[in-house]
Design a protein around this nucleic acid. Structure first.
Length: 577
RNA sequence: GCGCCCUUAGCUCAGUAGGAUAGAGCAACUGCCUUCUAAGCAGUCGGUCGGAGGUUCGAAUCCUCCAGGGCGUACCA
């Protein structure tokens, strides 16, 4: 696939034409650039500068075809119109603009209608490769956003029942995005927003109370819209064990609700912990009422003429700020709708001054966030730092058939049950492997397969294979030293692997910047593929001592990148399989 | 009706700012284990990128319209 390398010149400027007619090759000084990309982009920018075309941004791509070099640009094609010249002629001019001798490129070719194809100097590739083992566990991390803070809110399910598979996708996405943001330097706080006050929680408490009465032999009806799950009975049983029949006539029921909330939150935290992370803060909606932040938002909006009392309810006049209809924020019953606390919560978040605020919602919440952002803007607060991510739903399939996610126990409705069935690594991998905009088809049959059909193991297997080779090398008394003799790595399989490895930091950066963890999954899959190909064709431990050492460095670097990548995904990197 | 997302191989999906011959996994078929893990590798088969226009030297990608699917469009969260 073609790939965009970089849009900026990273400040590593080369010499600029000085207007005295000197060709830049005379005053070009070496050692200014980290890699060929920077060198090419800088030189292209200088070319454009000389032509007074500074508004054009040169773009580099990575051709998928080896014959088209390591980097390619269609700049000459773009310039054909402004320069009123033929692309091929412009390409030739650009090619001549590059210094003949430089340490970054081995050659430049003009191909097709006017593409410029750049071939990286192999020594430069080796230099970049050495960074992998030199950086070790830190390879792939950048300090791009160091010093910045981020808040990421996700899951945020009210404590009315165990986490479902839908929550699972969000939990894994959120955790992995956190890890990716941290890899670019952010200090990230994971927050879980919940409400233990509203109607749902009242029904929860009542559900437990009714089950408790049933356990006591009271013949009572259990309404259909109450919580049907077996976990309600479990909680009722615990209360029965502790209090006996003492609560039989207690209709106040706060004990039922409180015990239910407590038990369910414990359960949720355990599930999250199994997935491999923990939330830093749990933000209770109730605190917004206690701290009068709800009232403050209404008062503030009212003072701006954006609130009106009508039909016994309080309305947010969103039509005044460009929406099609006004929204009720306080019902005639006196209870706020979800919009009001949502706005107040976001006001609180914004005032906590994070450089980045990420909200992850399921597709069913698509309608809520425009109102929230509009509310913030109406209150004069900034929203540019807020990134709202919407993910599509999960469909469970098995044997090509959709598994209905009903409340019936027999189906895998909870995240815990899914992890019991397929394990944490598979769970995380399947939730991460698709773009979050796409509906996720979770193939239970495939996930359960502990064999070659399961893509998770393909990556892990590469890691385990490498560990096995390293063990064998040690057993045979090979003294391994990192980065020795790597110039001996010259075959196509070896160079393909090396070139893929050195892209890792850029890949991590772009996955984080675009909030797209699935890119890392695809990258690691491709990496494993390149390794397996190398493994098949190149023997690591051989009679050639120098080549053995070189290849040990290559597989060790591969192992490191796989391990670092899997760590970002929260997936284990087993040494044996 | 309106809003957001989706439509790419038989199935599940990639395709990262518009680039060169559209990729992978699964499924089907064929080879490769006396050599560091065959949970692997190599190969065959498979596509009017939902449809129609448009912009461009160049479109799966951008714009418009249409069709199909999902989710919303509450004084539910």
């Amino acid at each position: 696939m073609w790939s965009l390398i970089s849009f900026c010149r990273n400040g590593a400027s080369s010499t600029v034409s000085n207007g005295c007619g000197l060709m830049r090759k005379w005053n070009w000084s070496p050692m200014n650039f980290k890699n060929p990309e920077e060198f090419i982009l800088s030189t292209l920018a200088d070319f454009l500068n000389q032509k007074n075309l500074n508004d054009i941004q040169p773009v580099l791509q990575k051709p998928k075809e080896e014959q088209f070099g390591d980097f390619s640009t269609s700049l000459a094609l773009q310039l054909a119109k402004p320069l009123r010249s033929k692309p091929a002629e412009i390409a030739a001019e650009i090619k001549n603009f590059f210094p003949v001798q430089n340490e970054y490129l081995s050659k430049i070719e003009i191909a097709g209608p006017g593409f410029l194809n750049f071939f990286a100097a192999v020594n430069n590739v080796y230099d970049q490769f050495r960074q992998i083992l030199n950086s070790a566990g830190r390879f792939g991390l950048t300090d791009l956003n160091s010093g910045k803070t981020a808040l990421i809110e996700y899951v945020s399910a009210n404590p009315t029942g165990p986490l479902t598979i839908g929550h699972g996708r969000q939990a894994v996405l959120g955790d992995t995005l956190t890890r990716l943001l941290e890899a670019t330097g952010y200090k990230v706080q994971r927050e879980y927003y919940f409400n233990n006050a509203g109607r749902q929680m009242r029904i929860l408490g009542e559900s437990v109370r009714l089950r408790y009465l049933q356990l006591l032999g009271v013949n009572t009806e259990f309404p259909e819209d109450y919580y049907q799950g077996e976990y309600i009975r479990d909680i009722a049983r615990q209360i029965l064990a502790e209090f006996g029949a003492a609560l039989k006539d207690d209709t106040e029921n706060t004990i039922f609700k409180d015990r239910a909330e407590q038990a369910i939150f414990t359960d949720i935290k355990n599930t999250v912990s199994r997935l491999g992370f923990a939330f830093d803060t749990f933000f209770n909606e109730k605190s917004l009422y206690d701290d009068k932040k709800i009232d403050a938002v209404v008062a503030d909006l009212r003072s701006r003429g954006l609130v009106e009392d009508r039909d016994g309810a309080t309305w947010f006049l969103t039509t005044k700020i460009g929406f099609e209809q006004d929204r009720v924020i306080i019902k005639s019953s006196g209870e706020p709708t979800y919009r009001l606390p949502d706005i107040a919560y976001h006001v609180d978040k914004v005032k906590r001054n994070y450089d980045l605020i990420v909200d992850i919602f399921g597709a069913d919440h698509i309608a809520t966030y425009p109102d929230v952002l509009a509310g913030l803007q109406a209150l004069g607060l900034p929203t540019a730092q807020i990134k709202v991510l919407i993910h599509q739903f999960v469909t469970l399939t098995e044997g090509g058939k959709v598994v209905k996610m009903s409340t019936r126990k027999a189906n895998f409705v909870t995240l815990d049950e899914l992890m019991d069935e397929v394990g944490v690594d598979v769970t995380r991998y399947f939730f991460l492997m698709r773009h979050m905009n796409a509906h996720l088809n979770f193939d239970l049959g495939l996930a359960k397969t502990q064999s070659d059909e399961n893509p998770v193991f393909y990556i892990q297997y590469a890691h385990a294979r490498i560990c096995s080779i390293k063990t064998l090398a040690a057993e045979r008394g090979v003294t391994y030293q990192p980065n020795l003799h790597i110039e001996l790595l010259q075959s196509g399989e070896e160079l393909n692997l090396i070139k893929h490895l050195i892209q890792f930091p850029e890949l991590v950066r772009s996955a984080a910047e675009n909030f797209e963890p699935h890119r890392l999954v695809n990258y690691l899959f491709d990496l494993a593929n390149l390794f397996h190909k190398f493994y098949t064709l190149c023997r690591v431990i051989s009679d050639d001592a120098a080549l053995t050492l070189a290849r040990l460095s290559l597989i060790d670097a591969t192992r490191l990148v796989i391990a670092n990548g899997l760590r970002l995904l929260g997936i284990s990197a087993p040494e044996k399989m």
